[in-house]
Amino acid sequence: MAASISLAYSFSSCITSRTSVYRDIGLLSQNRNDNPKVNGVPRSRLRIVCGLAEEERPSVECGNYAQGKTTGGSPGSSQVSRREVILRTSSLSMLAFLNFRGERPDYLGVQKSVPSLALCPATPNCISTAEEINDPGHYVPPWTYNPEEGRGKKKPASKEQAMQELIEVVENTRPDNFTPRIVKKTDDYVYVEYESPFFKFIDDVEFWFPPGNRSLVEYRSASRVGNQDFNINRKRIKALRQGLEKKGWRSVGF
């Protein structure tokens, strides 16, 4: 993400945008009363000082620490000691790390029943070429590395060459400063974990070269936790596609 963000009790107020705050908190509900927890963490333990106007703050309980107040201790105490600030910052950082990374889904990979990548959940933070074309919220078109009006006629690339081109673009493209890490690679499949720069959220991104002579590549990009992604997955795929187009690739049908 482009904006900088820090956890509560930092020595300077958070420098952030509304989008990055909502994204990295990973809100699971628009109604705070319906959702007493955020990714398994009680809201009462999530104290975030945002430095934003009241109407711009995310719907989590922002603590009163920015005004120098405390929620415990001796009566009349109105200041938070530097040691307490440091300890609380450390604790919340670890809490966020442990709870916001999420577990790796067990359904990743090429599905066996109908060979394809997995479908998306109902949430809008996932896109996949396996979806129906009449589901514009989740469907995205596959790619071809040998377009007919391009190098497919002149000098078609082999699957091995296309795989190397894909790996190169993945490793050198970091939209929103997410860091890619290739977890698995076979002769027809690549699985990449993208890690966010602040709260270390993980997005799961897959690429599959299905069998056949059409030179196709299918893909799936999904946020592991939360509900909204503010188009992070679409922006990532667009950046990768633009990088691949420089090597001769094209989207199919679009």
Rank of each mutant, 00 (worst) to 15 (best):
L216H: 09
F230L: 08
K112D: 12
F178W: 08
E148G: 15
S77D: 11
L117W: 00
T89C: 15
F254G: 10
G137K: 15
N172M: 10
L46A: 00
T71K: 05
A53D: 13
S215T: 08
E132G: 03
G26Y: 00
E171W: 04
L98H: 09
W208Q: 01
S223K: 01
K184F: 09
Y9M: 11
E168S: 14
E193M: 06
S215D: 09
E168W: 14
P75T: 14
S116C: 14
E61M: 10
F230I: 02
P210N: 04
Y22E: 10
V225Q: 12
G137T: 13
A222S: 12
I15Q: 12
P136I: 04
G40R: 07
G226P: 06
Y65F: 14
S215W: 04
G253V: 10
C14S: 12
E84H: 15
G51C: 14
L52W: 02
I133G: 04
L244V: 10
V190D: 00
F11E: 14
N125L: 04
E160T: 12
L28Y: 01
N33A: 11
N227L: 12
V205P: 00
L98Y: 09
F199R: 06
P197D: 06
I237C: 05
N213R: 07
S20C: 12
R83F: 14
F230W: 06
D229I: 01
S81C: 06
L240N: 04
V183P: 02
P36W: 03
A130I: 00
L108C: 02
K159Q: 15
I182G: 07
D135S: 13
Q111K: 06
E206R: 03
Q30A: 10
N134Q: 15
E168C: 06
S17L: 06
L28A: 07
